[in-house]
């Protein structure tokens, strides 16, 4: 290990209020969730010395996954019966393992367990949190694209109150996020997609498991009766300096019928929209080509449905 722990201190608040109050100090303590990003930095001698805020000691941040009812839509859910599920809420310390084990989430938001399964290995999944993945703001974060494709919002709490920020508005540049240093992510809210939505999740990593992404696409499409694209989300990890929603390509597709011409147009648009990164894990050229391949695969298989 390349650090000396003597350079660090940890505070373990008992309540959320205490935790939020502590964040008003300058400099504010740094949140410590599952530690799977922070402990890696500690090991590599790259963790900023200072005070860390242990979220594990705060019971309010460890709530189980909540599934709440949505507004009844008579057309799709029929008359009578229970209210359809409308929203899933993950708490700050919800882990990938929690999601993999949750039968209802598996059914309602199938991309989440797919992503969870491919993040690190089981030992990482039992510690690592979705909120940590969002806050860490790595361009290679695998949990973020499916959340963003599902139009998730991030619940940010500070001593001053709570605000909701759309995840697709959360990032503005490399490691730049909407979170203020005095805020904690206290929850992630994910609306259940319209029935009949088709999703696509594919991670291309350096190997099958225990791999950082080189390219990842999470896609969600809502088709109308005559196969016109009502709404589409295309979210990439590891291609751009931050999790990237390909809005230009989305807008080219929205309103169009899903047919071969639309697919090639979309791929062409994506090819110019992306400005991929070159790094130790892969090349810009590879990323661009594979990103286009994944889009083609997504739209192609959807068309085949």
């Amino acid at each position: 290990m390349k650090s000396s722990i003597a350079d660090f201190a940890v505070i373990s608040p008992r309540t959320l209020a205490e935790a939020l109050a502590s964040l008003r100090q300058t400099p504010p303590p740094v949140p410590l969730a599952g530690g799977t990003d922070i402990m890696v930095l500690l090991n590599a001698g790259q963790l900023e010395p200072g005070v860390y805020l242990n979220l594990y000691s705060v019971p309010e941040l460890r709530r189980p996954i909540e599934v709440s009812a949505g507004v009844r839509d008579a057309g799709t859910w029929g008359a009578g019966g229970a209210d359809p599920p409308g929203e899933v809420r993950l708490s700050a310390l919800t882990t990938y393992a929690d999601v993999r084990r949750h039968a209802e989430v598996r059914r309602l938001l199938p991309m989440l367990p797919l992503a969870a399964r491919e993040i690190g290995a089981v030992q990482i999944q039992s510690r690592a949190t979705w909120a940590g993945n969002i806050a860490n703001a790595s361009p290679a974060a695998d949990g973020v694209p499916p959340l963003m494709a599902y139009d998730a919002t991030v619940e940010l709490s500070s001593a001053a109150g709570v605000r909701q920020v759309a995840l697709s508005e959360f990032y503005s540049g490399y490691k730049q996020t909407a979170r203020r240093p005095d805020e904690l992510i206290t929850g992630i809210r994910i609306p259940v997609p319209a029935p009949g939505s088709i999703d696509y999740f594919r991670k291309v990593g350096t190997r099958k498991f225990q791999a950082i992404s080189k390219v990842l696409l999470a896609g969600l499409v809502e088709l109308g009766g005559s196969r016109e694209i009502r709404k589409i989300r295309l979210v990439f990890a590891s291609v751009m300096p931050f999790t990237y929603r390909a809005r230009k390509t989305e807008s080219v597709l929205e309103g169009r019928r899903l047919e071969p011409g639309a697919v090639s147009l979309a791929v062409e648009t994506l090819r110019t929209e992306l400005k991929p990164i070159d790094d130790i894990r892969s090349t810009a050229r590879y990323r661009l080509k594979v990103a286009c391949n994944l889009l083609e695969e997504f739209l192609g298989t959807t068309m085949g449905c």
Binding site: V40, A44, A121, T206, R207, K208, F209, Q210, A211, I212, I280, R281
Partner: peptide, 15 residues
């Protein structure tokens, strides 16, 4: 320069 196991890729059970 890729002196970490996250960047130097060994085959795992799955590979």
């Amino acid at each position: 320069q890729n002196c970490q196991l996250t960047n130097y890729i060994l085959p795992t059970t799955a590979d």
